[in-house]
Every structure is written in C-alpha cells, then in structure tokens.
Design a protein around this nucleic acid. Structure first.
Lengths: 214, 214
DNA sequence: TCAATAGTGTCTATGAGACACTATTAA
DNA sequence: TTAATAGTGTCTCATAGACACTATTGA
C-alpha cells in the first residue's frame, strides 16, 4: 500500500517527517437505571479512571481502532463509532506528542456486559474528573447525543423494539436532561414511528400502544 | 515535552508503534462576484488542482498547521481554521498511510490576495474533481458553512462593516444557494444586529440603513 | 412626475405548548 | 367503584411566509 518511493518537492520521504502518535478515545454512552451513563476503564498505568482508547494500528481505520480498543480494554462490543473532534494540544498527554481523535459510540445497556474488574458505567451527572482531559470528550459526546435526540426518536436504538411512547419519552428526557410534555412529545414523534402489533400494560391503566423506529 | 521514558503496559515505547502521517487539508471559502468560492492550489507533484494542505510539524497545533499551509502554499493569510472531519481511508492517499484532518477557513474576499501562478478561486458550483477525495472535504465545508448561516447573520464576517440588510441577504442567498424573502429575512436578522450610523444609497431608491454584527 | 429600492402592516397558516377531557385497564 | 396510565380535542400564542402597502431617494 505505502509507496516508499514517494518524495515531496523538497526531496523528503514521508517517513522523514516527525510523526505524531494518533490515538482514539471513545465515550461509550448508554442509558441505564434512568441515567445517562458513560463507560470508564481503570487505567493500568495511572490507576485513574478514563475513557477507553488505544493507539491506531498501521493501516487501520479509526472506527476499527475504536472497536478494537473497546474489545481489548473493556471487553465490550461497540457498534457504530462516530468521530467527534481531534484534540491536538501538544501538552495534553504526558506521554508525548499524541493526537487524540475523540469518538462517540452509543450502545444499548442490554448489549453491554461490564466486567467490574476492568470497567464501570458511571452516570454522566456524577462522573468525576478523568485523565488527559477526557472530560472534554465527554462534553462533546453528550452534546452530540442531545443533538441527535432533539429531532429523531431513539436515533441510536437504545430501546428494545417494540417500545411504548412513554418509554421513548423517558429515554429522551434522560438524554436531554429535561422533562418533556407527554402530549407534545407524542405528536412530534408519532409521525416518525411505525405502529407495532399489540399493547403493553405496566401495572394499572390503559395499555400503551407499541411502536418501532421508522 | 516528550517523555521518552514512557512505556506502555507491554513495554513498548511510544516511538515503537507505527505512526501515520497526519496532514491538514483546508477548504478556504469566500464569496466573490456573488459566488460561493473555494481556494484551490496547483499541486506541484501531480499538476492537479487540490485544496491547500501540509503535513503537521512536530508539536504544532492543527490550526497552526493550517495557517502555515495557507501561507506557504497559497500566500494567503488564514483566519480561524475549524476542524471538520478526519479522513482515514488508508487507500485515500497514494503516498502512504495518511490521516487528513479536514478544515474550513472562511476569509473575506478582500483579505485574499491570490497569486494566479499558485492559486485560484473557483465557484463551488463549477469546481471540478480534485485529487485525494478533496471534493469530500469541500462537501463538509459547504454543509458547515450553510449550517452557520442558517441562524446567525454573516457568522464569519464576510461582509465589510457596516453593511445594508440587502447586502446581508444577498450573502446568505449565495451561501445557502436559495432565494430568501426580503421581509422575512429582515425580521429574522434585525434583532441580531446593531444599527450603525448613516445610510447608503445604491443608485435610485430609498437609502438603506446600515448595520454591524452584534 | 416615474422608477427603483427600503422598509412596515397585517393576514394567514403552521406548529408548540398547555390544559382539560376521554379511554382503558387493575384492583 | 377508584386509581392509574394512555391518548385526544382544542385553545392560545408565537412565528414564518406572503402580499400589499408606505417611505425615500435619483432622474
């Protein structure tokens, strides 16, 4: 793949330039126990909590680096990593010149099997400071997640289908961090959903209709 | 800055990992002659038109790499580069494993002095294919630019202050690629502008009031 | 005066929000 | 029946869009 004969106008080969280390760091987000939560791992070196990440391997796509880091560092199978931002402050990482490409991956809690020795899920509201400015990454991730949930119903498939309108609303309330009017929410979302068979009753009260994502 | 003693859990130093080349490629956008336009340079190697870019120098911030590449490759003084996306397809660049961090920089035409031997401004609508999938970068840039112009008046300062409401509307029409209703546009924007002194008449007709960005 | 451009009054359609009402179940 | 939850009818208010009107200039 690499054309080792390539030389730039000044005669230098690609390998003659100094190269940064390129890492991916990922905010794996989910909703569990009515809380918007993020996956943290315990850093083997610093014994600090941080977001899972890894250096990019040769010829690897960034999304594949993300999925590999989640498997190796947290024993978690990721889904669809999405680029957020490149953090490029040269003093950001004490190990040297590292560019970190922040990612967001949203995974239903049901698909996350957490090994307590390696990883934990922490509510975003309660998540303390992490190393290497990983809090900044979390901020980007939450902002992106909220943006996604403002228009579309359950855009990342956090709910098991079929789901009730109330379940969908509670999900959006948790992600957005605000209470939503049931009637307004229903009218905004019903056109973007498909009706599913059957009803579901949670305790007393009229059974709720069921929906699937469009 | 670099801690050369750092070793990861498997005993490898940072430098022992293979490293990608990291480049920045920038869509410098402006509006000239009523056209949304992009700066292209003529590639010295391939003799193809492309977006200006460079490899990132050691310890350099990405935004500084962008500004340097614009100075060196196009003789242009950039303003405020903004990250768009990392293009990471390993086969994207024939020279080898290159990650390209796409940027957008919006510069008023008045601040762009184009050396015809090195660079040119091309209307986006008429811009043909560029090398290394630089067309993808342009798509991201245009989408971002339109997003910015949907809410805020002249968000990147393309107009010289003070300006008339009609000048502002024509700018937004060019960027968004649609015609806008003068009255609706005025009412949407007037609250986000500050009134400036004086009037300006362009030919016959009532002289227009002047505004500045908030 | 007329032509041309700037700016406003106002009607209408749309949609968000709020509230009250109806609907359907368990106990 | 009552309590609880689901879902709808409808009023109000804010806003976008459209259109017509007024305002102010040069020729």
């Amino acid at each position: 793949m690499a054309d080792t004969e390539y030389r730039d106008p000044s005669g230098k080969r690609l390998a003659d330039y100094p190269h940064p280390s390129v890492a991916v760091d990922t905010a794996v987000m989910t909703v569990v126990d009515g809380e918007l939560s993020v996956l943290q791992i315990c850093d083997a070196v610093d014994d600090d909590w941080r977001l899972p990440g890894t250096f990019v391997h040769e010829g690897e796509r960034l999304a594949d680096s993300v999925l590999r880091s989640l498997r190796e560092k947290a024993g978690v199978e990721g889904l669809a990593p999405r680029q957020l931002h490149v953090f490029d402050d040269p003093s950001r990482d004490s190990r040297g010149w590292v560019l970190s490409v922040a990612h967001l991956d949203v995974v239903p809690a049901a698909a996350l099997t957490i090994d307590p020795g390696r990883a934990r899920l922490v509510a975003v509201a309660a998540s303390g400071a992490m190393v290497h400015a990983h809090d900044d990454i979390l901020e980007y991730a939450v902002a992106q997640l909220r943006e996604d949930h403002r228009e579309r119903p359950d855009p990342h498939g956090l709910l098991a289908e079929p789901f009730t309108m109330t379940e969908l609303r509670r999900l959006h309330e948790v992600v957005l961090g605000v209470e939503l009017q049931p009637d307004t929410f229903r009218r905004a979302m019903v056109g973007r959903l498909v009706v599913a068979e059957g009803k579901r009753a949670e305790g007393p009260g009229k059974p709720a209709g069921l929906y699937r994502r469009g």
